[in-house]
């Protein structure tokens, strides 16, 4: 399908049409930072954002999710039967997802849906989503997506990619789902070859504007055990607070913990985000903790992202270069420096 054009003043109208069929999420600035929220007023949509503070992974993988519910009341005929509560899989559109975050969903997908296991909630939510991405025409100095098989206009994982071209958006359908969505929204005007050219220029300019680069070429051939035993970990880890900020903000971190919460005779089984930065993450019931030291936990995070994932799935590193951890680690532990250490030493 050829690229389409949406005049900026028409965007509210497009969103209004989508709202009739879909739950629509857009970036909303609230309490000082952007997050994806359900679209309320299409006339107030503001796509002039760099990125959301937390990654959009919570749309598919909420921080706290009620998986099952049960009754412990013997008088109940369903006593002790674990049941899935009703969940919402309404067709949903996300508008304005950055290409790195869309790519991250693909990286996480191999973990949640694979020949061995299938996470039903992740899978069904992903199916119900249509992702309208927004290319990054002004990447930040902390973005290093082009080093990790991604880029400011990367298409992987998206259904539609928008190019912001001043008065217009150029909309490129990437999947059939995306093409259908544009059709439904009445976006039918073909982009002129001039607009097409502008889009390509904007993309080339943005790619050039990425000033952060990390080396990854030797990660694969290195032995995991050598990296594990490398001498730099103490120095990398010293300042770390084990605060988990890096993993909670990260679009590719997927770890969770499952908890039962019981109130009188009713119980819920809940899964909550967890993080390898927390000591509790690996604490055994015996009291033994195989990662009792901070340095072991810091090493785990980087080894998982930059080595174990790569080795296990042969799908690149588990980092899309969004720079969230770089910007929000309170003690400036910068993954770009760790890429260098792991790749070069």
């Amino acid at each position: 399908m050829s690229d389409k054009v949406i005049k900026k003043e028409e965007l509210p109208n497009v969103l209004k049409i989508l709202k009739e069929t879909y739950e629509v999420f857009v970036p909303v600035k609230e309490k000082g930072f952007y997050r994806f929220k359900v679209l309320e007023d299409e006339n107030k949509v503001d796509l002039n954002f760099t990125n959301t503070r937390l990654s959009p992974k919570s749309l598919l993988f909420p921080q706290s999710e009620r998986m099952f519910e049960y009754s412990l009341d013997e008088a109940d005929e369903d006593a002790y039967v674990i049941k899935e509560p009703p969940k919402d899989y309404a067709p949903t559109v996300v508008v304005g997802m950055r290409p790195c975050d869309a790519k991250a969903l693909r990286l996480v997908d191999v973990n949640f849906v694979n020949p061995e296991f299938k996470d039903p909630w992740w899978a069904r939510r992903l199916e119900s989503l249509t992702l309208i991405g927004l290319g990054c025409k002004e990447p930040c100095s902390t973005c290093f997506c082009t080093s990790v098989n991604c880029g400011p206009f990367n298409e992987e994982g998206l259904d539609v990619l928008l190019f912001d071209l001043g008065k217009n958006y150029m909309a490129r359908a990437i999947t059939e789902k995306g093409a259908q969505l544009l059709k439904l929204a009445g976006v039918s005007e073909d982009a002129t070859s001039d607009l097409n050219k502008q889009a390509e220029e904007s993309k080339a300019k943005a790619e050039k504007q990425i000033i952060s680069h990390v080396p990854t070429d030797k990660l694969k051939e290195k032995k995991a055990i050598d990296l594990f035993d490398a001498s730099f970990w103490d120095e990398v880890a010293f300042a770390c607070l084990n605060c988990g900020t890096c993993t909670f903000l990260c679009p590719t971190c997927w770890c969770f913990d499952i908890q039962d919460e019981v109130n009188k005779k009713k119980g819920d089984r809940i899964r909550n985000w967890d993080s390898c930065m927390f000591p509790l993450f690996t604490l055994h019931a015996s009291g033994h903790n195989p990662r009792s030291e901070k340095v072991q936990r810091v090493r785990q995070r980087f080894m998982h992202k930059l080595k174990y994932y790569l080795d296990k799935y042969d799908n690149g590193v588990a980092c899309v270069g969004c720079g969230r951890c770089v910007n929000y680690c309170p003690v400036n532990i910068d993954i770009r420096e760790v890429f260098k250490l792991m790749n070069e030493t």
Binding site: Q63, L241, N242, C243, G244, F248, W273, F278
Partner: peptide, 9 residues
């Protein structure tokens, strides 16, 4: 987010 960064800092 219950990350406890405040506590850990």
């Amino acid at each position: 987010t219950r990350c406890y960064a405040c506590r850990n800092a």
